[in-house]
């Protein structure tokens, strides 16, 4: 059972609020799960770090304050370069997304910790939030001109019947690709890691030869752990970068 690579993704209730014992109102019961716990932990960690390290408002930053400032400037540069100065009004949104995904992924790398982003519903909700912001802002700012997004400038008229459906489909698939990319990366990475780690235990318990054979999966696990840290950071970056680019579409729909 310790070997089961799926169990790490299981949602368990820690406690529930309301609705206890009443069958009719059961739908209103709120369960505080391990997933919710790690969401709270993620938010608390991010907020505490950023707020506490910048408390001194040092003109010459300390190490931790510098780290906070680097995070800020990293995301700010990303938003500015892909969505322009106008996109900076979405900077807090992109920053929150980036930090949430990054810290949730990183917390997931700690053994026995739950990975919030390994659940499709979480990543899909985040992706849907991004697309909703893009749609609402796009229509609010450009009105019907937002539809120009689907007809790139400079495309000859006879190609439009082909190009427009492609653009529409690519737009509609954005929330799916955005969410599945993050979800699948985290899920697959954690399963692989768990499977290889499980090999070590299984082979190690199978006598001397097995213990010797366990060296290979051991190295694999070490390598995969490093790779997973890279993936965790990279996926957060990709998620935030794509968000910035989609927001750019909402700000400047005519490519």
């Amino acid at each position: 059972m310790a070997n089961d690579p799926i169990k790490q993704f299981k949602i368990t209730d820690i406690f529930t609020i309301g609705g206890a014992g009443e069958g009719e109102t059961g739908g209103f019961e709120i369960a505080f799960t391990n997933s919710a716990l790690f969401m709270v932990a993620t938010v608390v960690l991010i907020s505490a770090f950023l707020i506490l390290t910048t408390r001194g408002r040092g003109l010459v930053p300390g190490r931790l304050q510098l780290l906070s400032e680097m995070m800020y400037e990293f995301v700010a540069n990303m938003v500015r370069s892909s969505a322009g100065t106008e996109g900076m009004k979405f900077f807090p949104f992109v920053f929150s997304l980036f930090m949430f995904v990054l810290i949730a992924n990183m917390l997931g790398m700690v053994p026995y910790f739950f990975t919030v982003t390994s659940h499709i519903i979480v990543t899909f909700a985040l992706a849907l939030l991004v697309i909703s912001v893009v749609l609402v802002y796009g229509f609010w700012k450009n009105g019907l001109g937002f539809f120009k997004l689907f007809a790139p400038a400079g495309v000859p008229g006879y190609l439009l019947p082909i190009v427009i459906p492609i653009e529409v489909i690519s737009f509609l698939s954005r929330p799916i690709s955005l969410s599945v990319r993050l979800f699948a990366n985290m899920l697959a990475g954690h399963i692989t890691l768990k499977v290889f780690a499980g090999f070590i235990v299984t082979m190690g318990s199978a006598g001397a030869v097995g213990a010797f054979g366990a060296i290979l999966p051991m190295f694999m696990t070490v390598g995969l752990t490093a790779l997973e840290f890279l993936v965790a950071a990279l996926q957060a970056y990709v998620f935030a970068l794509l968000t910035s680019m989609y927001l750019n579409d909402a700000i400047h729909p005519s490519h």
Binding site: A36, V43, M99, A125, L126
Partner: peptide
């Protein structure tokens, strides 16, 4: 449950 807590925590963040 996940959507609810995500909405709460992300809004707070």
């Amino acid at each position: 449950s996940q959507i609810l807590w995500l909405a709460l925590t992300f809004a707070a963040l």
